[in-house]
Design a protein around this nucleic acid. Structure first.
Lengths: 357, 357
DNA sequence: GTGAAAGCGCTAACAA
DNA sequence: TTGTTAGCGCTTTCAC
């Protein structure tokens, strides 16, 4: 009765199920994929048999026949940074819930990026793509779009694709205004080095937002007050030292990310400067550790961003939703203990505004 | 001449290349996969044509025909924890270098785990599997092994598969002995709650190692001194509070992970206890932030562990290496500022051992 | 509502 | 060294 002899260990095929259920392979396929035009009695029988036989369609075979992969490619510039892993976490959650697999790629350094684009990444391997904070060159974007699958980008301003991210300008403005309201008039910024060559655009973008927010608040600017260091704690430490070496020191620091802020906090401590007494610090992200070191920061809902990106992509795959939508998720200022009025100003405030107590 | 008409957008097939190069599809296949028995002139020509046509084999088709996927499945219990991301980073690096794709799965909570094992995970989707800190039940392990692909586990004591990890006992002993040498006689431990049901076995294991190390050092033990909290900073904070509420407080704390230690540090600070003056703290992992908060800890080379796991798996796929090998990577004590002699003892030390100065 | 037939694009014997 | 011949296991028209 068996359509073909099979070795003991070989997994059941669709024909095994078909034979057992007394139907054709097409019917098995239709039944198991929940397609219409299948008698419910037939469907039940097929499902039961499939279950008994432990049948599960071969992804390669159905992929070959249908052109679909039920796999989503995810590209991140760096895997081992808090922000990215949080985004991936959010993405993974949604994808798995929908039965999609997650093909993860880490761009890494410039060399890795080059290698990535040289090969034909994701070629026929994915039904869709999520690019997290990857700034694409025009030709790179063309290459990605040549895959012919829907793309959702996180935190990027890509054209012609769906995207989800925060309002950079407004978010940075919240940080600057918080400091301005406290009375700070000289605010510095510590930022991560942009990669050599295009790749990861957030640092540059955040710097631009900072400059405009400072201008908008009518505050001073000094080129010396914007310092750059390699990404990470040590890079931030070096940058902070440069800031402290400025002829005039600012009274507050805006850090492009919490990790950068952590490095700054360490350096300030070692330099004998108390936070927030001698220096206020605001971070960006609301990293898990921000609460531990009492860092005031701009919180962004990172996992939610990932989840939103995944959801948008799945919608696009179903033909639902706007394929070019731009979703903006809200950020918020989380005031902790690393910010306070600057010393000079604080006296004034106390003198004039604290008669009670 | 073309073997079949193709739509403009459709990617080139192996037949397109074969036609263009004036050879058969098999020869194209052989040439491009670097198989022997191909004239080098033929190979060059095929490669050139393939390049011109932008040909890249369909993974589904070659997967279907060959049974191989050039994809490795990676399972982690939690994605958004430093340790796991770092391991995945190491794995990814090696895999990409070897041309393998990485299918990532996050087990998540108990429900997620159940769901994972209910479906047929990775069925015919991967050539090999890396399980990171996933403690498998016998039936679950059987299910994984039924996939018929080589498996490498990280940090687990699985039977019949290759594994890579640290020497738990020895590593914890280093922490305990460091404290003992400083003169601590009462050492507590803060650990993350083991998941309900089996799943993630490290916390339990680390606790056992701690108990034996303490016994070995001839130190006191108090049930109260081993406190458990939910994983994460807040859980650790609660656990620490419980420890501080003990009738007799220990003079030092060993935390099962750096993240746990961070939570403890915060709680100690809020409780007005200075570290290391009133309490010494040792962590485990050497998390990026450990240096920032000056935490003494046991460092494990996490990315290297991931890389080793991937390398072992690739070896197994090539038929090289011992498929049941156990690789142990070294850990080391990193002494920072969170440990010092206990107060009482310190006086003695100063009195007796510091005549100069 | 169901079945038959024709691929999807490759790889792997087996011939030559 | 190269070509021919069968599939791999499914999905998808198109009939019925």
């Amino acid at each position: 009765m068996a359509r073909r002899l099979r070795r003991q260990a070989a997994p059941a095929t669709i024909f095994d199920v078909a034979d057992q259920a007394g139907v054709s392979a097409s019917t098995v396929s239709r039944s198991l994929r929940g397609m219409p035009n299948v008698a419910s009695s037939t469907r039940e029988r097929v499902e039961r048999v499939a279950d008994e036989l432990g049948y599960d369609a071969s992804p390669a075979a159905s992929g070959l026949a249908s052109g679909r992969t039920t796999t989503i490619g995810v590209v991140v510039p760096f895997l081992s940074r808090w922000y990215f892993m949080r985004v991936v976490d959010g993405v993974e959650q949604v994808l798995r819930g929908a039965g999609y697999d997650l093909l993860l790629t880490n761009l890494g350094d410039a060399a890795g990026r080059t290698r990535f684009f040289q090969r034909q990444p994701f070629n026929r391997k994915v039904d869709g793509l999520i690019l997290v904070d990857v700034a694409l060159q025009p030709d790179e974007q063309a290459q990605m779009q040549a895959l012919g699958v829907p793309i959702t980008v996180v935190a990027g301003a890509a054209l012609g694709v769906a995207s989800v991210g925060i309002d950079e300008t407004q978010s940075v403005r919240m940080a600057v205004q918080h400091l301005a309201h406290l009375g700070h008039e000289q605010i510095g910024m510590i930022r991560a080095e942009a990669e050599p060559g295009p790749g990861f655009e957030v640092p540059d973008q955040r710097r631009a937002s900072f400059l405009s927010a400072v201008a908008e608040a009518g505050l001073e600017t000094e080129p010396e007050w914007i310092v750059t260091g390699e990404w990470g704690l040590d890079g931030a430490a070096v940058a902070t030292q440069n800031l402290l070496a400025a002829r005039r020191m600012p009274t507050a620091i805006f850090a492009g990310s919490d990790e950068t802020a952590f490095g700054a906090l360490r350096t300030l401590r070692l330099a004998g400067l108390e936070v927030p007494r001698h220096m206020s610090v605001v971070g960006f992200d609301d990293h898990d550790m921000a609460g531990v070191v009492n860092l005031t920061t701009i919180a962004q809902p990172v996992a939610r961003i990932g989840a939103a990106a995944a959801t948008m992509l799945l919608d696009a795959l179903d033909g639902r939703g706007d394929p070019f939508a731009r979703v903006v998720v809200p950020t918020r200022l989380v005031v902790r203990g690393s910010t306070a009025p600057p010393i000079r100003r604080r006296r004034q405030v106390l003198r004039s505004a604290a008669p009670a107590r």
